[in-house]
Design a protein around this nucleic acid. Sequence first.
DNA 1: GTTGCGCTTGACGCAGCGTCAACTTCTAGG
DNA 2: CCTAGAAGTTGACGCTGCGTCAAGCGCAAC
Lengths: 260, 260
Amino acid sequence: MTPRPRATSATETLDIAAVARLTGVTSRTLRHYDAIGLLAPSHTSPDGRRHYGQAELLRLQHILVLRELGTGLDTIAQIVEADDPTITLAHLRDHLVGLTAERDRYARLASTVARTIDSLEKGTTMSHEEILDGFHRQYEPEARERWGDDAVDRSNAQWKALGKDGQQRHLDTHREVVEALGAAIRVGFRPESDEVQAIVAQHHEWLSLFWTPTAETYRGITQMYVDDERFRRNYDEIAPGAAVLLRDAADIWAGRHLSS
Amino acid sequence: MTPRPRATSATETLDIAAVARLTGVTSRTLRHYDAIGLLAPSHTSPDGRRHYGQAELLRLQHILVLRELGTGLDTIAQIVEADDPTITLAHLRDHLVGLTAERDRYARLASTVARTIDSLEKGTTMSHEEILDGFHRQYEPEARERWGDDAVDRSNAQWKALGKDGQQRHLDTHREVVEALGAAIRVGFRPESDEVQAIVAQHHEWLSLFWTPTAETYRGITQMYVDDERFRRNYDEIAPGAAVLLRDAADIWAGRHLSS
DNA sequence: GTTGCGCTTGACGCAGCGTCAACTTCTAGG
DNA sequence: CCTAGAAGTTGACGCTGCGTCAAGCGCAAC
């Protein structure tokens, strides 16, 4: 005796948009799942619109859990088709092995990269060459696994030469920015001045050629210019305080132009 | 004055197969990298064959390191194009965020899966025949693609190697195990007896087709046979106490034969 | 001559949808 | 009742990073 809303065709089913909202998938995905036979709607209204019932929602739940775990849709199909906790269990057991392996892989990668970055940020007298060399060495264990010893040894020997060349080109390109900074210092411009902000924009553009920093990472980079002796010398030998000026100006500039 | 090997066209360059062997990538990948402009050969001989020099090897090395980190090829192209340690390091900094996020994601997934397994183990209500039948049908086609894991590769290979007859025999094995357990109970064998231990070995072999249990998980599984009503009934309908006997025997067997 | 290896280009295929495009249908407003 | 707009539909191509044929060419051995 409870009042039903407009008994046209809706009993307890949800249309595709409602399911999309509830589960967070797109309607396109639901159509895709229908197309590949992974999840059919409970019924379609005469005009072709898809409607989903509770059973389909549960099945979708199951699908999404497995998908979240990185399982392929075909495998998911077989698992949900079986609709059997024990099958799922067997699958999960296998999957757990893969997941922990991936976790460990990423943990190793992250720690390697972090150490590389640390050695850069804290490196007292570390040159670009040494950084690069160290970077390369960090990957030796993995590289040796994949590539074999002789290949790694040979590439290690050649690594410096290439890096040296690239380093020189980088410094040349960069010098314009640094000299502009030096000029700004001698004239006494402040970080928030249009002139210095323009230099920062140039610096950022230079950096953005290959990589798009966020506000946070851009601030981090310019902070690094101050913290790291090797970098700071690069700036300050043009004009004392250049690194600090760049950092301060970049801090302001990032707040104005970069999304945090 | 050092003797050169056949000065036809080879000075110090490597052909595509040699590069493939050294670096572990396929020749197809090298051609792909050439096609998309990521890594061109140093020169091509008149018949169209690609040859790579030391510089190309180093560039490839750089590419592969970045690829290993999960960087997309387009981004890799920009980074190696820059050929600048600072850019590379900036990228690493950026990438570290993604790596730790991925690591955490997988860690969360792994723990979620582990807990899901736990709860499923307690709630599972399937007979082994159904498990086996469903498993066989479901994993035959596609699991191998998704799961490069050794365990699944091995289990599928074993399953296929069994052939139709062998597969059927394997299906029968479980019943043999259960009936042998029943017989052992009726005769009054103890868990540590050679007879019961042999049954456990058979059971473990049967189970190993689906995943490779450690001592811990094998004990967990057999414990589940006792804890879960439906499983226990499967065993105990053959002979009362079969599940408990299997668990106790498996506990001993695991300690003797499985690494913890 | 011919067999066979190793290379070449060209093409299609795969997952898992995103993203138009072109069309229909339902609903609300005037 | 007409009309605009929102939201649905099918169909198609696009994307990444190659794997995997297919067909052909050059070179060396038999």
